[in-house]
Nucleic acid binder design. Structure first.
Length: 668
RNA sequence: GGGCGCGUAGCUCAAACGGAUAGAGCAUCGGAUUUCUAAUCCGAGGGUUGCAGGUUCAAUUCCUGCCGCGCCUACCA
């Protein structure tokens, strides 16, 4: 509702400016006043217009307020300060709409969106860094779906890369395991933990003797080639680890629709098709000299190309391409003819946009307990399958360190003339999760003096240094279970366990969302394990409290006031008018912002705003809860109004938490 | 060296598009009619927003320079 009123106000102002001053502002800035006494929206536009109209801002503001006329849904506009225009919402109208759950639908753009996230190398257990990726990605998917968009979720599996090769080397050359033995091992509980150690040991083994690296490249070659014993073992391992990753993420209610694998990019010759296009389009060029001699290279994204973009003739550019300095070159095809990661990624992204002219084969892979089917790529697929790819927008949830690679893919699309697709290619970039030195020490890692002095230390799968996702979840659940046990001894153990799990997931998902993407999370158990203050459980608890009021009062919170809308809007009036009601009104206002916040999260690809909003709503509710005993309220009319307040806040809080993938326990 | 990002309270972080008195949580200290369960609430202290300039009616936000930190800069992914 809040969003809807904002748009209406903006449109009204825009029309008025055009009519009266013949001015077209590209954007009408609308802010939220610091206090509700100043209304619900504030427009600083008089300051902006002062120069154009050569009048004092205050004067302009007064003119606008006097001339603009009534705006539906608002009671008044008012000039404040040096020239702000404050707009006041018609409170009882908004409240009545909220009770009914009315939300004017805004037109959603057509076209399917593809979100790629997680994309964990299938060679070891997932760690907290992967958790941040998956939670951000999954929440963004939920945000888009909330906004009415159709979304496909993909998790790219690099099953033929160096990391898988390394763990294969570990099993074959260090562990000396046979294929049968490995197959046996894949069936053990948490096989990914086993791989975690094997991978770390293999990395050490390479460092002991650089000669050992030859084994790696032989293995890697075999994987890329396919159709051999080594590749079969790699398949065994990577599939088993992938299943573990899906299980881990499912604990957090994170699911995928499709799992495209690098092996199919290779074996279905996606790259060949892309390579041809890139050569034809002049994006790639062959280097005849220097250190990149014999490679197909392209200009690295972000290196200066045209200072006067679009002015120089394009054909002149082509002849200059070969003059791209060595350090500005990105090798796409190595001199031995093999293609690097960026090249495969370009092919994959041409496919995503339906520009490649080839498709994967598809097989059913993983059936979630809720019945959702996840598909995997395959050289020869099943005849009947859903249609993936061929989308109009994509978001890639990939950490900030890969920004350059991502930009190179985008530049390749542009180079091929696919500007529209490039414009709808978003690198959803976020910073890594690192460990505080204290946390690392607690985990038993020996630190150098240099590391101890740092604010945080980067996790490293290669070194086996990090916190595993399942371990963190287990710890959180155990910790939550202790609290639940202490509070609800009367419940059965399975009930308590279920609640503990909801709380643990709420705590974890909220923790991963509360930081803005650009902030490095310095992970610390004390903070992550907290259930108090700005946390998921705090928000869940607010909902539980709201539910309790209804339960104690003998009402159904989900249908309170619903069927007949028995409260006429004028009944709200007396409770929402005047200074004294501002505190309550602020709660209603906050509850009206869900879709507004969701839009903002999508526009800025920043889910943290939603986390912040849910917390603030919960915080305001707790304050309200403390100040207003409801069930003992003597005035029946007021009691009813307070119950409506709780019902609306509760509903909106649940909705906001759902978008973050957080459910609420029946009791806490 | 070049590219990207960051620097805000003791600690961890907010403040979208420049806007009204820079806000939360944690930690510390003090308090809450024993009630719809305190995983809660209220209060207190705590700030030269890294430094120096500039643009603007208005700068934590934009520009320039400097200082500090991180990441990227492989024929790795």
């Amino acid at each position: 509702m809040y969003r809807h009123l904002e748009r209406r106000l903006a449109q009204h102002v825009r029309d008025f400016l055009r009519r009266t001053y013949d001015i077209d502002l590209p954007r009408i800035v609308i802010e939220q006043p610091p206090k509700v006494e100043f209304g619900e929206y504030a427009l600083p536009l008089a300051f902006e217009l002062a120069k154009k109209l050569r009048k004092a801002p205050r004067k302009i503001a007064e003119e606008i307020v006097a001339g603009i006329g009534p705006v539906e849904g608002f009671t008044k506009l008012e000039v404040a300060g040096a020239g702000y225009i404050n707009a006041y919402i018609n409170r009882q109208e908004l409240a009545a709409a909220l009770v009914k759950g009315e939300e004017p639908r805004s037109d959603t753009p057509a076209g399917k969106i593809l979100v790629e996230h997680s994309s964990i190398n299938p060679n070891k257990a997932a760690h907290i860094g992967h958790l941040r990726n998956a939670v951000l990605g999954d929440t963004f998917v939920r945000l888009l779906r909330f906004a009415g968009r159709e979304v496909d979720v993909q998790n790219y599996i690099d099953n033929t890369g160096v990391q898988v090769a390394d763990v294969v080397v570990g099993f074959l050359h260090l562990e000396k395991k046979s294929r049968a033995e490995i197959e046996q091992l894949t069936r053990q509980l948490r096989f990914d933990y086993y791989c975690w150690d094997v991978y770390a040991r293999t990395s050490q083994w390479y460092e002991q003797d650089k000669q050992n690296l030859q084994v790696r490249s032989q293995t890697l070659h075999a994987l890329e080639e396919g159709g051999n014993e080594t590749a079969a073992i790699a398949e065994l391992i990577s599939i088993a680890v992938l299943r573990r990753h899906l299980e881990t993420m499912d604990r957090l209610d994170i699911e995928y629709d499709f799992l495209p694998r690098e092996s199919e990019i290779l074996h279905l010759h996606f790259w060949d098709a892309a390579f041809q296009k890139l050569k034809d389009g002049g994006v790639l060029f062959y280097e005849n000299e220097g250190k990149n001699k014999g490679c197909w290279v392209m200009r690295r994204a972000g290196t200066s190309k045209t200072k006067s973009a679009g002015i120089l003739a394009n054909d002149k550019q082509d002849s200059e391409d070969s003059e791209v300095s060595e350090e500005d070159q990105k090798v796409i095809v190595r001199s031995n003819g093999t293609v690097g990661y960026v090249g495969k990624d370009i092919a994959y992204h041409l496919w995503k946009f339906g520009l490649l002219g080839r498709d994967f084969g598809y097989r059913k892979f993983y059936l979630y307990p809720n019945g959702h089917q996840s598909w995997i790529s395959s050289a020869n697929g099943e005849p009947d399958h859903p249609h993936f790819g061929d989308v109009s927008e994509i978001y890639n949830v990939i950490d900030a360190r890969q920004a350059e690679a991502q930009n190179t893919v985008i530049e390749a699309l542009r180079g091929l003339g696919y500007n529209q697709q490039a414009d709808h290619y978003t690198h959803f970039s976020y910073e890594m999760v690192a460990l505080t030195p204290r946390c690392a020490a607690e985990l038993g890692y020996r630190l150098s003096e240099e590391d101890k002095a740092k604010a945080y230390i980067e996790v490293s799968g290669r070194k086996g240094f990090g916190v595993k996702a399942d371990d963190l979840l287990d710890t959180l659940i155990a910790s939550a279970k202790k609290e639940v046990d202490a509070r609800h001894a009367q419940l059965s153990d399975s009930e308590r366990a279920a609640i503990a799990e909801q709380i643990a997931v709420g705590a974890l998902r909220y923790f991963m969302l509360k930081f803005t993407k650009s902030s490095v999370i310095a992970f610390d158990f004390r903070e992550a394990l907290s259930f108090e203050g700005e946390t998921g459980p705090y928000c869940q608890y607010a909902v539980v409290r709201a539910t309790n009021i209804f339960r104690k009062g003998g009402f159904d919170p989900d249908h309170f006031g619903k069927p007949s809308g028995s409260l006429a809007s004028n009944e709200f009036a007396e409770h929402l008018q005047g200074e004294a009601s501002n505190e309550l009104w602020e709660l209603w206002l906050a509850a009206s912002k869900t879709s507004y916040i969701v839009d903002q999260c999508i526009a800025t690809t920043e889910p943290a705003y939603l986390a912040k909003h849910a917390f603030q709503l919960a915080q305001q509710f707790n304050y309200f809860y403390h100040r207003h005993p409801i069930l003992t309220e003597a005035d029946e009319g007021r009691k009813k109004f307070l119950l409506y307040t709780v019902a609306v806040v509760r509903r909106e809080l649940i909705r906001a938490l759902e978008v973050m993938g957080i459910t609420t326990p029946p009791v806490m």
